[in-house]
Simulated scan of single mutants.
Amino acid sequence: MADLEPLLRDLAPQVLGALVRHYGDFDAAEDAVQEALLAAATQWPADGVPDNPRGWLITVASRARIAAWRKDTARERREETAARLSTAEGPAPRRDDTLTLLLLCCHPALTPASQVALTLRAFGGLTTAEIARALLVPEATVAQRISRAKQQIRAAGARFTLPPPEELPARLAAVLHVLYLIFNEGYTASSGQRLHRVELSAEAIRLARQLHTRLPGAGEVAGLLALMLLTDARRPARTRADGALVPLAEQDRSRWDRAAIAEGVDLVSAALTTTAVGPYQPQAAIAAVHDEAPTAADTDWRQILGLYDALDRVAPGPMVTLNRVVAVAMVHGPPAGLDALAAAAPALEGHHRVAAVRAHLLEMAGDRAGAQAAYEQAARQTLSEPERAYLAARAAQTST
């Protein structure tokens, strides 16, 4: 079964998309697909993978959907759908509905939390329990989000079709944002005992790859995939054996994934030279500058500052401002960074990373007492245990 799992995970959204397009009932289609996947997991190890596994799954899922329909005692509903069901056991359609399915999961009627949960369930193939564990929320909460999302999609009158061309950019932006949220939560968990939730970051990369395959000319899709690859490449060196956080400047760069870095650099280089610039390409370019530096001292901070200036023009935001402050300090010195942080502070206060950056700049400037207090503040504010431990350790080091 372990050998079949990647294949089934890749095929699941294609099969679900085909059934939703054909029947228009998300819940019933999802149940039928789960039956088909279970049948495949049971039969294929013994009988072998069929020549057309996607068609096999669509056929079995369609039969399960018909069987469920036949149990329905509402004569009127049966009569209304009979014409559509009569063709369900024909040849499996060749069209790929995964992009349409992903756009449906990220429908604008849904909240970001619901978009994330529904995407992981329908497109990523994760169970409700797996999503709950990954997001560190109760299983009942995830189930409620998914159920409400389906109801909201139905209430909005959403149809299983690609949106018109004028709506596609906004809908695609929502999809990319959801994948970005999933990756970030996996790479740096916002709370809990673990720094990484690899199952989330790996799933985000997998989905971004599929999206890039379907939209190879979309620069922002390439930029997001590049950003994920270039960031995740550092993960092996980001923690010690005991789980303690290792900051970027102190990481063993020989442990970084060079193949992922090379792929990410190629992707972002092509996107920057051939497509319009959005929020993800500059972030990927910044990650590339970090990853290509042989040592932390070799980092081209002037180039990074220029890229943050470009990012601030196309996608301004609190975290962009905060990261740019660090680049200012590295180029122009800690006092300049502290001045930039003070100017931006009213819009940034409350997040533990603000205090962490202030502590780092104060330590660079030689103000050990101020740095200690700021590190202690940041440690109190974060909900991540690995980050709290790291910040507390930095506070202790500056006090000696």
Results as ranks from 00 to 15, higher is better:
residue 127 T to N: 03
residue 356 A to C: 03
residue 72 D to L: 13
residue 11 L to K: 01
residue 359 A to M: 04
residue 84 R to V: 15
residue 174 A to E: 10
residue 108 P to R: 04
residue 274 T to Y: 10
residue 212 H to M: 13
residue 255 R to K: 13
residue 279 P to E: 11
residue 371 A to V: 08
residue 260 A to K: 14
residue 198 V to R: 08
residue 111 T to G: 07
residue 262 A to Y: 01
residue 150 K to F: 01
residue 312 D to I: 09
residue 106 C to W: 05
residue 347 A to T: 09
residue 223 G to H: 08
residue 11 L to C: 05
residue 277 V to T: 15
residue 23 Y to Q: 00
residue 315 A to M: 05
residue 158 A to M: 07
residue 306 G to I: 05
residue 361 L to F: 08
residue 114 S to K: 05
residue 160 F to H: 09
residue 161 T to I: 14
residue 164 P to M: 11
residue 52 N to C: 06
residue 59 T to M: 14
residue 294 P to Q: 03
residue 175 V to E: 04
residue 252 D to E: 12
residue 197 R to K: 11
residue 69 W to R: 14
residue 129 A to Y: 00
residue 139 E to C: 03
residue 114 S to P: 00
residue 344 A to V: 05
residue 57 L to C: 05
residue 242 D to R: 02
residue 337 G to D: 07
residue 28 A to Y: 00
residue 213 T to G: 11
residue 344 A to W: 04
residue 311 L to S: 03
residue 143 A to Q: 13
residue 230 L to R: 06
residue 229 L to T: 02
residue 343 A to S: 10
residue 124 G to W: 00
residue 141 T to K: 02
residue 245 L to P: 05
residue 128 T to E: 11
residue 132 A to N: 05
residue 355 A to P: 03
residue 169 P to M: 04
residue 5 E to R: 10
residue 335 P to Q: 03
residue 166 E to T: 12
residue 96 D to I: 05
residue 138 P to K: 04
residue 257 D to F: 00
residue 112 P to Y: 10
residue 195 L to S: 10
residue 69 W to E: 10
residue 194 R to K: 12
residue 278 G to K: 04
residue 51 D to S: 14
residue 221 V to K: 01
residue 347 A to H: 06
residue 340 A to V: 07
residue 349 E to M: 12
residue 63 R to A: 14
residue 63 R to I: 15
residue 137 V to Y: 04
residue 171 R to S: 08
residue 175 V to P: 03
residue 399 S to D: 00
residue 129 A to Q: 10
residue 204 A to N: 04
residue 383 L to E: 15
residue 98 T to F: 07
residue 26 F to P: 00
residue 387 E to C: 08
residue 28 A to N: 01
residue 147 S to H: 14
residue 68 A to S: 12
residue 31 D to I: 10
residue 194 R to N: 15
residue 390 Y to N: 12
residue 189 A to M: 08
residue 255 R to T: 10
residue 165 P to V: 09
residue 127 T to C: 08
residue 149 A to D: 02
residue 249 A to W: 13
residue 364 M to D: 13
residue 239 T to I: 14
residue 250 E to M: 11
residue 266 D to Q: 14
residue 353 R to Y: 06
residue 339 D to Q: 15
residue 389 A to S: 13
residue 125 G to E: 01
residue 80 E to G: 00
residue 171 R to I: 08
residue 117 A to W: 04
residue 157 G to P: 05
residue 323 N to Q: 11
residue 220 E to A: 12
residue 88 A to F: 03
residue 301 W to G: 06
residue 87 T to H: 11
residue 158 A to W: 07
residue 392 A to I: 13
residue 347 A to C: 00
residue 55 G to I: 10
residue 295 T to D: 03
residue 234 R to K: 11
residue 143 A to M: 09
residue 366 G to D: 10
residue 4 L to R: 07
residue 205 I to C: 05
residue 286 I to F: 06
residue 7 L to E: 02
residue 176 L to T: 01
residue 104 L to W: 02
residue 232 D to L: 13
residue 135 L to R: 15
residue 377 Q to W: 02
residue 149 A to P: 12
residue 15 V to L: 06
